[in-house]
Design a protein around this nucleic acid. Structure first.
Lengths: 337, 337
DNA sequence: GCCTGCCCGGTTACCCGTAACATACTACCC
DNA sequence: GGGTAGTATGTTACGGGTAACCGGGCAGGC
């Protein structure tokens, strides 16, 4: 059991058939160029030895891996699961492998992941961030691989950004809450990344535009249902008269919603609650959660599409693509009068 | 912009310094073997060119990639996110790269993913399934890489299984529901994989042991909150007198719980609800969800640990490791009398 | 002065699949 | 029968980092 068996190579298969490995390689890639009798014998040898194709030598000599790297900050966040699905719906049919890496919202970790991916010779990168270390920009530049950034359409892109306008989305939802009669609205933020800052800015701009005072509660911890519940408690202590909560994502919002239930606070009569992203769960809680529905899967599709297009040598398209978002009021805001 | 700059190699760096690439390679791996003045000049050249280490040639010549493959059926499922975290908490400090692949519960897709990973010369594999195609077993055998299977501790393992007893866990929760006074309990299952079958079996065994009639509702669709809500509707139509629902995972259970809220059905008085896995959300819904808390992260840690150990040539340990589960009654079962 | 040993850098070969080119052989035409 | 085209296989070289081995120069001991 401990004798290490070397995995079979093309040469092993070739020896067994009595041809050169080139012929076997041809059979695998362009079978019609190999005579019928040989085809049968080669296939037999492949089966007998259990040959597993080895991409490494080809990557080495061609410097092309037929793989792209996809970086997401987190895997537990539903948003990125849907982004991944979008990317793979394009890369897979095209015969490209997607290498997934996550970096826990840390720019340093992102840098390390990118270095690793480039070490495997990925042909292109999709990043979920618009803020990067200087070394990231340099690496991408010297590696000469195409890059697309997703999730945001505001910050200046390395090459191309495909996303939506976080600031505008946040502004729009805040206005909607105000229209529905909510006034003393508190913003719940978790991790303070660039996108969160944009969203807070949108919220504050909308509040001020209506002569209202913005108030926000921030935590450095990761967002979660539990965290949303905790934040609601803190907010009520600090601003007992609050009548609206706008959360940076659905997790916090759902947590806040449950905490209201637990405390017997009527939603939306006493407090209106809104989330961000529009996940499955927003549609099933009672009352349904008001949320901003963002084009997560579409961003993935578009980004992958643009990347593959460029790998085929086609032009990159516009440097910024802004996809639309949509507001779903659910049942957690006061009804329109 | 369109001139493709080739990414710098060790040779380029060496030329710039006036040494051979071997010396540069040494500097990167064992700097103490290079004289101090050269060290400085090499570092300068590395910075100037922005050299990015290339793992591919080394993988080719050593057949070792310092990477392991981790296969999970789904990324949207919280369970696997935690499994991944457990694996990486071990592989990362050890300097191993984790290559993630998902296969949507399809054995054929699993086979394809494994072939791809082996094509990149991963040094070992962690699989989340105990049922595999014949070709999967053969590939792993001929590739000669160590494998660990997680999530289940019952089915015969390829080499080693680290998991928990799905059947026993399901049996235990069913008994608990019965103890709490629920009798006409319906089982909600989604995708019919091997683990689901084990869980159903545990449920049925417990029901029969108490002279109760097992009833289950199955759907081939993926489980989700929405699906849980739908199943509850169907179940009530078919068995209006049901007083308990045991779901194959928390998502379905939460969906069912909300549907009860929507219909004004009292939980747990009229209907008791239990889920499986013990995610974050189970603890925040009102009432808290009864659920089986499974050792997701620990399975990942143990599996990675065992795999790395074997890669260092140490013995594999027992072929089956059964980790404990725990039942959390939450508030969605009737109180103990 | 010569040998020993160390330090530090260079040389060589290897991993394996495939692009590009070369060659053998057949068939067919005028 | 010589030329041409086409088909089927072989030959060669390449990619880039590193293990294993080699060798020059210098210090220190006797």
């Amino acid at each position: 059991m401990t004798e290490r068996k070397k995995r079979p190579t093309l040469q092993d298969v070739a020896d067994r058939v009595g041809v050169t490995k080139m012929t076997v390689s041809r059979y695998l890639k362009k079978p019609e160029q190999v005579s019928a009798p040989l085809r049968a014998r080669i296939q037999q040898a492949l089966d007998a030895l259990g040959y597993i194709p080895n991409k490494v030598p080809d990557i080495l000599s061609s410097s092309r891996s037929q793989a792209i790297g996809l970086l997401v900050p987190s895997l537990t966040n539903q948003v990125f699961a849907e982004l991944i699905r979008g990317v793979e719906s394009v890369t897979e049919p095209a015969g490209y492998q997607t290498m997934l890496a996550h970096y826990g919202y840390s720019p340093q970790a992102e840098e390390a992941r990118i270095a690793t991916l480039l070490g495997y010779s990925v042909d292109g990168l999709i990043l979920s961030e618009s803020v990067h270390t200087e070394r990231v920009r340099r690496m991408i530049e010297t590696a000469g691989v195409p890059v697309v950034e997703v999730m945001d359409s505001v910050s200046p892109a390395i090459e191309q950004a495909i996303g939506f306008d976080n600031e505008a989305a946040s502004f729009a939802m805040t206005e909607r809450m105000i229209e529905r009669g909510h006034r003393r609205i508190v913003y719940f933020a978790a991790r303070m990344d660039a996108r969160t800052r944009l969203k807070i800015h949108g919220y504050e701009r909308a509040m001020r535009a209506h002569g209202l005072e913005p108030r926000s509660l921030r935590t450095e911890r990761a967002s979660s249902f539990t965290r949303g519940a905790l934040l609601l408690g803190q907010a009520l202590e600090r601003w007992p008269e609050l009548d609206g909560v706008f959360c940076t994502n659905d997790d916090l919002a759902i947590g806040a919603l449950f905490e209201c239930q637990r405390r017997g606070i009527a939603v939306p009569d006493r407090i209106g609650i809104a989330g961000f992203h529009g996940h499955d769960i927003a549609a099933v809680v009672v009352p349904r959660l008001a949320t901003v529905i963002t084009p997560r899967e579409e961003m993935g599709r578009r980004a992958a599409d643009s990347l593959l297009r460029r790998l085929r040598g086609e032009p990159a398209g516009p440097p910024v693509v802004t996809l639309p978002f949509r507001i779903d009021e659910g049942g957690s805001l006061r009804p329109a009068s």
